[in-house]
Structure formats: C-alpha cells, structure tokens
Simulated assay, not measured.
Amino acid sequence: MGMKTISTVAALAVAAFALSATGPAIARTKQSPEAKLAKILNGRVAGKPVHCIFLPSVRNTKVIDHTAIVYDAGSVIYVNRPDSGAKSLDDDDVMVTDLHSSSLCNIDVVKLHDRSSGFYNGFVGLGDFVPYRRLASN
C-alpha cells in the first residue's frame, strides 16, 4: 500500500468512528423533565393534593430531574414537587428518608446521595402529593 492509500484508509476509519459516536447521540433526543412527567401521567387526571401517602402501597419511585418525585402506587400515581431543593433532584441519585411511621408526608425531608460514590448530594423538602388516577372509560 502506498502512503496515499494508508492516509485514505485512516481518514475513513476516523470518519466512521466519528459517525458511530455521534449517531446514537443524534438519535436520542433528550426530553425535558416536564415532557418526561407528562408521558408518565398520560391518560390520568389530577386529584386533590394530600399531605401524606402510605408507603407500603408504593411499588416504584422515579425521580424527574430538577422537577419532581413520582411515587407509583398501582392505580394511583402520586407526584411530589418539592417545596425546597427541587433543583437538587437527579435521577442518578439515591433517595434516603428517615421515617417514623409508614407514611411519607409533606413535612419530611429526602436526602440525596450519589449512586456511584455514596456521597451526600443535597436534600429536598417535600410538598403535597398530587394523586393522578386513570380516566374512567365509558
């Protein structure tokens, strides 16, 4: 192979690598936190906010970056938009809550710890929990 052929092969390899690295990034468009929350709540209607939820009924918890914590209790999804510290919410953090009963209430504080290092990352002061239920079908 001549020097020109090697240069061409190298240039093609670099171009292929660059395209493969940017291809998935272009295909994955990042949704806004509000859009992620709307997708979770699609087909549901908000009810009257409550001060506490019964934690044993919660199956799954999801953090929406800088916005809210979603508590999935099966037929009801509760959304908590913290009164303070919402900007600290990161879906890669682990939430730690000191509970004194089986209920989680709007006066409770949730500590955030980095999932990888375990280091403290901040906290949120919970607000009221808004229940979302599926619309009744006719």
Rank of each mutant, 00 (worst) to 15 (best):
M95L: 05
D92N: 12
K48R: 08
A68F: 00
L41I: 10
V96Y: 01
R133Q: 09
N106D: 15
F119S: 13
T97M: 09
A46V: 02
G43L: 08
I64V: 05
L135T: 08
T61M: 08
H51A: 14
P131N: 06
Y71Q: 06
I77D: 04
V94D: 05
V63M: 15
L112W: 02
Y78C: 11
G118I: 00
H51F: 15
L55Y: 12
I53V: 12
H51W: 14
H113I: 09
S88E: 13
V9L: 13
S75C: 01
C105R: 03
G47H: 01
A15Q: 07
D98K: 10
E34M: 01
V130G: 02
L99H: 02
C52W: 11
P33Q: 08
D93M: 00
A21W: 14
H100Y: 14
A73T: 02
K30G: 07
I107Q: 15
I26M: 09
P56E: 03
Q31E: 15
V79K: 08
S103L: 11
N42M: 02
N138E: 06
N106H: 12
M95P: 01
D93V: 08
V14P: 00
N60R: 15
V79F: 11
L99S: 04
G118D: 03
A35W: 03
V50L: 04
I6L: 09
Y78N: 05
S117E: 10
V124I: 08
N42Q: 15
K36N: 14
L135P: 00
Y78H: 12
G85R: 05
T8A: 11
N80I: 04
H66C: 00
F54S: 10
N42D: 14
A27C: 04
L99W: 01
S101P: 00
A16T: 10
V130H: 06
L104V: 04
V58N: 10
A13V: 08
A86V: 13
T8I: 08
V70S: 01
V70K: 06
G127L: 09
S88H: 13
N60M: 09
L37V: 07
E34N: 04
A25D: 07
V70T: 02
L37Y: 08
L12I: 04
K4G: 06
S117A: 06
